[in-house]
Design a protein around this nucleic acid. Structure first.
Lengths: 123, 123
DNA sequence: CAGAATCCGATCAGATACTG
DNA sequence: CAGTATCTGATCGGATTCTG
């Protein structure tokens, strides 16, 4: 069936910021990308890292990320099935933004008396 | 050092990136912030800059941005009513991220054969 | 293991009408 | 002018079940 990619209407994006958010603004997208920054992960591994995401949501978000060429999905024709997800070069190009958002968000959360940190996945 | 993949705080965000997206990931939020970068705007002025947003949505997004202290809402007790919106200092602190996302998105859109540019609001 | 399919409530977002 | 109120269709997202 026709899946909504990020291309909707030509005049949808008044500013590239919107386009960026459209790509990584999904519920678990930033988190998925974050986890993939320095490693390759299998479907269930991602699921364990993001327990609040159901398989359905995970599939949905992964598919969209894949369609937008941010991640690469590699299927190994073995039994049982093995599928690995990793960042594409395009996906890697967005790491600085993720990192910037992380640092900023860190600041924000600290201001809320909520401890959290970036873990410096990339460095 | 940080071998834990992510600070797991079930009640909050797994990664500050999420918090950031929670603040600016709303449908028109980035766009609103963008328009407010270098100026102060009234309700209807924002509405004209973002025609696809209905008054209801605009109010919703503006209220959230205000509650998150990203923008300042100033009401002038005159007739007819006059309300101005502007970035708070906190809101201004997010400009670099908006700008980074804009530049990245620009690249992305060009790759899609879709011309667009940042308008260099800040600079 | 990696998902697909289905059901369903919750939330989002648009159109319209109204108000101080 | 700057919203609010209401109704409604669309979409999101969770739980469950099933399959190659």
């Amino acid at each position: 069936m026709e899946e909504k990619t990020t291309m909707k209407c030509p005049n949808t994006f008044n500013c590239p910021v919107e386009a960026t958010l459209d790509l990584i603004g999904g519920k678990y997208k930033a988190l998925i990308l974050w986890h993939l920054i320095d490693t390759t992960l299998r479907f269930n591994e991602i699921g364990k890292l993001i327990p609040q995401a159901t398989p359905k949501m995970l599939t949905q978000q992964l598919r969209e990320l894949e369609n937008d060429s941010l991640i690469i999905r590699t299927v190994y024709p073995v039994v049982p099935p093995k599928v690995e997800y990793s960042l594409s070069d395009f996906g890697k190009s967005i790491i600085p933004i993720l990192d910037a958002m992380c640092k900023w968000g860190e600041n924000y959360l600290n201001g809320l008396d909520n401890k959290s940190d970036c873990n410096d996945k990339k460095k």
